[in-house]
């Protein structure tokens, strides 16, 4: 297990951030610290200074126990949350305000309930100035890609949880973001739907290979989808404690890949490290 510690150390970019020969990473979080002010309590340090880089075209998952601050890292990348310290750079440029290059698929339902599925996707283009007719045509196209061609006129409450996620995915992807941020997007879904959604996501991703930062508490899901799995420790002052390249061949089917011996090997290796953190979280939660 010493090798992993080495990897953790290597995560930190060289001091001074001298530009390398490579293109700048799609997402660079350097020494990001996140804390929350809770009235009447000392400052809650959710995430200790942490660094994470996501290269262009790379699919990276962040896995960690509940409440470890995985989502806050995502929000910092999206520009929804200002980190207490450190730098966020997107394609080499420091992030100011919201991250316009990123699409964000939220854990909870984020569709506008007063718009139909089609309108929910089309609005993402319309606000950018696309003509309504064009926006509708492209939206219909995307609904087809996520397998909902015939559901355009439904309102979100008339769709199942999985269907709403598909609409959400279409809504995010229709804008063609260069970076995809996903916060336990398939968390509320049942196991079968999750695998189907995972495969759908990989198929869509394979077409143009965006940089993906995918947050999940499900290690199997993370391994099945990713190029790299990053493990976070239990909060408070959570940090990245492991970084594992996933060398499974692509294209993958998220259901079949779980039967691969290499999958099990990776799973065992990562779980050994994660287990200690999970135990720690539960240990701290019980008074």
């Amino acid at each position: 297990m010493e090798g992993q510690n080495m990897q953790t150390a290597m995560l930190r970019p060289p001091a001074g951030g001298a530009p390398g020969v490579d293109a700048p990473p799609a997402v660079a979080l350097d020494d990001i610290a996140i804390s929350f002010a809770i009235p009447g309590r000392p400052l809650f340090k959710a995430v200790a200074p942490t660094s994470l880089h996501v290269r262009e075209g790379e699919f990276v998952s962040i896995v960690g126990p509940t409440g470890c601050g995985k989502s806050t890292l995502l929000n910092a990348t999206a520009g929804l949350l200002r980190p207490a310290g450190g730098r966020v750079s997107i394609f080499g440029a420091p992030l100011a305000g919201l991250n316009a290059q990123a699409g964000y698929l939220f854990q909870q339902d984020a569709l506008m309930p007063w718009k139909t599925a089609l309108d929910n996707v089309a609005i993402a283009l319309e606000i950018g100035g696309t003509r309504r007719a064009d926006a509708l045509a492209q939206a219909q196209d995307w609904l087809k890609k996520v397998g909902l061609a015939r559901f355009g006129d439904r309102y979100p409450h008339q769709l199942s949880g999985g269907q709403r996620k598909r609409v959400g995915l279409a809504q995010v992807l229709v804008r063609g973001p260069k970076i995809l941020l996903m916060d336990e997007p398939f968390g509320p879904l049942d196991a079968q739907t999750r695998q189907i959604m995972g495969t759908l996501l990989l198929n869509l991703w394979a077409q143009d290979r965006k940089a993906v930062l995918f947050v999940t508490h499900d290690l199997e899901e993370a391994i099945a989808l990713s190029d790299r799995v990053v493990i976070m420790s239990a909060g408070p002052e959570a940090r990245i404690i492991g970084d594992f390249p996933i060398d499974l061949a692509r294209p993958r089917d998220t259901a079949d890949i779980r039967l691969d011996p290499r999958f099990h090997e990776l799973y065992r290796q990562i779980w050994n490290q994660l287990k200690a953190e999970v135990v720690k979280t539960y240990g701290e939660d019980t008074p």
Binding site: L98, A100, A102, Y104, F106, A110, L111, I127, Q171
Partner: peptide, 18 residues
């Protein structure tokens, strides 16, 4: 207004007017 719907709309790039 649901903060998630709002955050989602902001991430889409909606202006205050939109």
């Amino acid at each position: 207004v649901s903060p998630v719907v709002l955050a989602n709309a902001r991430m889409m790039g909606m202006s205050e007017h939109q």
